[in-house]
Design a protein around this nucleic acid. Sequence first.
DNA 1: CCTGACAGCCCGGGAGAAACCA
DNA 2: TGGTTTCTCCCGGGCTGTCAGG
Length: 337
Amino acid sequence: MITDARVLQPEFIPSEVQHRDAEVNHLSSALDPITSGQSPNPVLLHGPSGAGKTCIAQFIVERLRETTVDVTSQYVNCWDDHTRFKTLYRILDGIDETATIHRQSTPTDHLLERLRNYDGPSYVVILDEVDQLDDKDLLYELYRVRNLSMILITNSEEDLFAALDSRLNSRLSNCVRIHFRSYHDDELVSILQDRVSWGLDPGAIDTGGVELIASNAAGDARVAIGILKRAARTAANNNADTITPSIIQEVTPAAKSDIQQQTLDRLTPHQELLYDIVTEHGTIEPRRLYDAYCDRVDSPKSQRMVRNYLSKLEHYNLIRAEGNTKDRVYHAVTSSV
DNA sequence: CCTGACAGCCCGGGAGAAACCA
DNA sequence: TGGTTTCTCCCGGGCTGTCAGG
């Protein structure tokens, strides 16, 4: 059934991409100054999840590296590396400057200093989920580093710009912005067909099956590939040689919750409990939420910390906060992703 | 009442100095 | 002397209390 599992992984970067010609051209022309040794303005990719932002960014940078002699690059996921220190560390890691950096004894200022002293070839840094960055001022400092170009990726450009101060706003307001819309069903179909031909036995799934997956995925390529992967695994486990519509329907909910689960896996137990409580109640006000939380945990964190957690959950789109002060309530986020 | 901003505390842990030992 | 262990310092990051503001 599965001949190459790699192509069913979410992080797989194909050697050719489909249905994003305009975005690809736009992005590569924005980065074009690099080929003549100049520094391009930052580029902002925004749009819903599963629309190909990360994939296209990495694809373009990879292509740039193949055609241009002097380019280095680094991918940073700001969700994983959300502190100033970790982001800078990751960026320095891309230019092999980390050998003498140690978390406990190298001040963050020193990291930035290192980066400023960098005088190697053009350096392209992809900052994925950039809205998760704790300290947005870092963007301003990175903006001013010579030879460093940034590709910023975010789901919501409004949220990102709302979190920036005026200084950064004016710097980044004239950067190149490229919007990625959700895929149409027929586009997902051909994306899926590529993956099928690269990674599955011939005849493992027919056109109708691929169309069904595309329609279930509702424009999200990550979901679509997730459904395909689960369906192929299920079929293989059942010793079936084809992926039937009933298998697809059966695994679709699980594939969708996989993605939600990946988010939940990144939470600490305390954060997850808060998420559970909000989800169970549907709607809950802060006081009751904190009481419920204290009831269910041995050594509860302070109210202050719980507020930190809640704003984090809200930022991750796992819960929704409504109303300002007195009438604040927290809502569960119903329709996932 | 609840929030976000801010300052400061404590903890774990690496580095380098200091102390120790053979 | 040279190798090993211990100590001290310093860092980032998690956490908390406070406070002004709505």
